[in-house]
Nucleic acid binder design. Structure first.
Lengths: 142, 142
DNA sequence: ATATTATGGAGTCACAAAGTCCACAATATA
DNA sequence: TATATTGTGGACTTTGTGACTCCATAATAT
């Protein structure tokens, strides 16, 4: 029931890129700025490319660019790109079989929690998170 | 971000006991009825005893009894007895240190999700879950 | 006295998260 | 066109922990 480091890395990378949504950002740059192991970051970025969240280009001056603007990328997209489909319990999987499924008293609870979680993730965009950061910075200044 | 089998076992055991809240239930009985490995259940019950959710008695005709009535035991109690304090991300731990903490843009999101999760867990009691089951059973009868 | 129950702790196993490494492909530019 | 720079793809290692077992011990009902 915890956010994995991998997801954290992905969110941090994308948030970082969100500061210059048009610009291109190399793995090296992201790795250094966000303190993420380069070779591990490589793996994560591949998923983000494959899922269509970022575009990549090779060669010198290559790197990554956001495919959509920060207010069009929500946390659910990122979550699912990294972790796959969201589900609180195994038995919510389509392929799973549980004899107790039909009368399971806990299922409604986990389902409720999952729904509220998905909603919050969906309602939160990269832009929101960038705003969040600015607010805090402003508070510090004042 | 998933419910562990251990937590599932704990909830199932307690729900089972909730059917006869006054009665005594041996590990063997619970294990057989709920299809939980006996030796593993032993470990789980120890935590529930230690955290004060159930009372245990030794010897023949020994077993476990709920310490409170089903409507006084909520899922948060059970969750925390098994998994410890609820926290979505490592850095929410008191002892953790993260340089980014003060300006971290994702923290508010995870915090929000965690709060809504805790609320739902707190609002859901064993009694609620027992009711849930009855409803479904009634639906099946009709 | 004996059988039955829970307790406490040590130990095993499997799997997945986290991270590394390397050979390869694309491409800008000198 | 040679070279340096960048991402790609896959294999591999490490580490931690969830899930589970086993056993010796303590309490207690009959």
């Amino acid at each position: 029931m915890q956010v994995t480091k991998t997801l954290d890395y992905a969110v941090r990378s994308l948030t970082y890129m969100g500061h210059q949504p048009i610009g291109k950002h190399s793995m090296k740059e992201i790795s250094q700025e966000q303190h993420i192991p380069l070779s591990y970051l490589a793996k994560i970025m591949r998923r983000l490319v494959k899922k269509g969240l970022v575009r990549s280009s090779l060669g010198p001056d290559g790197g990554y660019t956001l495919r959509k603007s920060p207010n069009e990328i929500n946390l659910r997209d990122i979550y699912e790109a990294i972790e796959g489909e969201i589900r609180m319990v195994e038995c919510m999987d389509k392929d799973s079989i549980c004899v107790l499924y039909d009368t399971c008293p806990q299922l409604p609870v986990w389902d409720k929690i999952q729904l509220s979680m998905v909603k919050i993730l969906e309602d939160t965009t990269l832009a929101d998170m960038l705003k969040e950061r600015k607010n805090i910075t402003m508070n510090q200044v004042n």
